[in-house]
Simulated scan of single mutants.
Amino acid sequence: MNGISLRDARVRYGPLEALHGVTLAAPSPGLTVLLGRNGSGRTTALRALAGTVPLSAGTVIWDGTDVTRLPAYERARRGLCLVPERQAVFGSLTVHENLELASQRYDFALDAYPQLKPLLQHRAGTLSGGEQRMLALSRALLARARVVLVDEPAQGMSPPVAARTYELLAGLEACVIVAEQRLPPGLRHRTPVLVYELRRGTVVFGGEADEQARR
């Protein structure tokens, strides 16, 4: 299967184990949601897939290839894009400069988020939380990555902009994995959307979004 997966993944932060043998698979193209409260392991799962935290056991498989020992920068070079919850933009650069780093032609990003047009000459660090998320997502959309990992994509956004964000992510021809505390309303009956619910570092549910919504 094309896509990316964790198999029996364990991650330790010093003496504490954050993931306890997590197995999950995200298809490509497709949208997968990792659900869980703070401390559930969903952010750590994204970082493990991206290679920004090492596994203490288990494997990361990408399009059938074991990439567990591949460093994060090499995964990025091969088409993996991680949008973390914090520090996802270059705060000292303008909105224009942030977008230009991703692509010389960024009209698509401004069409997706027209709210950014009047902010092009503003420094990214002066934007509101929701505006910074729009900018971070714009850069991810422009990257045309094969795998897109986003931690809380709609944080700080108004409901209409959040709904637009999920439409954009669901429409990508890529393997898209997002981490959220709860399932966004617009995805509850969308097919196909895979959902994995994590609790204290283990997977407690895996299935389609409409199944999870009925629980």
Rank of each mutant, 00 (worst) to 15 (best):
R133P: 02
K117D: 03
R133H: 05
F108D: 10
A102T: 10
Q104P: 09
T126D: 02
E167A: 15
K117G: 03
F90Q: 04
A145Q: 03
D151E: 11
G125D: 02
N98A: 13
P159H: 11
R146M: 04
L101F: 02
L169P: 02
Y113A: 08
E152L: 09
S158N: 13
G130Y: 06
P159W: 15
Q104V: 10
P114T: 09
L135I: 10
L99G: 15
V150A: 02
R164A: 11
S138H: 06
R164T: 06
V89I: 08
A162G: 08
Q87L: 11
L127Q: 12
V148Q: 09
D151Q: 12
L110Q: 12
K117S: 08
R139I: 01
P84E: 06
F108V: 09
A109V: 10
G125R: 06
Y106R: 07
A145I: 00
D111A: 09
L135D: 09
T126E: 02
L137G: 06
V95K: 03
L99I: 13
V89A: 03
G129L: 04
D107T: 15
A145C: 05
L127K: 07
P159N: 10
V95I: 03
V83C: 01
G125K: 04
Q132M: 11
R144A: 05
R146L: 07
R133A: 10
A140F: 05
G91H: 15
S138N: 14
L110K: 12
V150S: 00
E100F: 06
A154M: 10
V147T: 01
R123D: 00
Y166V: 01
E97W: 00
Q115Y: 12
L168H: 13
S92F: 05
H96M: 01
S158T: 14
Q132D: 10
L141V: 12
R105E: 03
Q121E: 02
E167I: 02
N98S: 13
T94N: 00
V89Y: 02
T94Q: 03
L137M: 11
A145W: 06
P159R: 14
V161A: 15
L99N: 15
V95P: 00
Q115A: 14
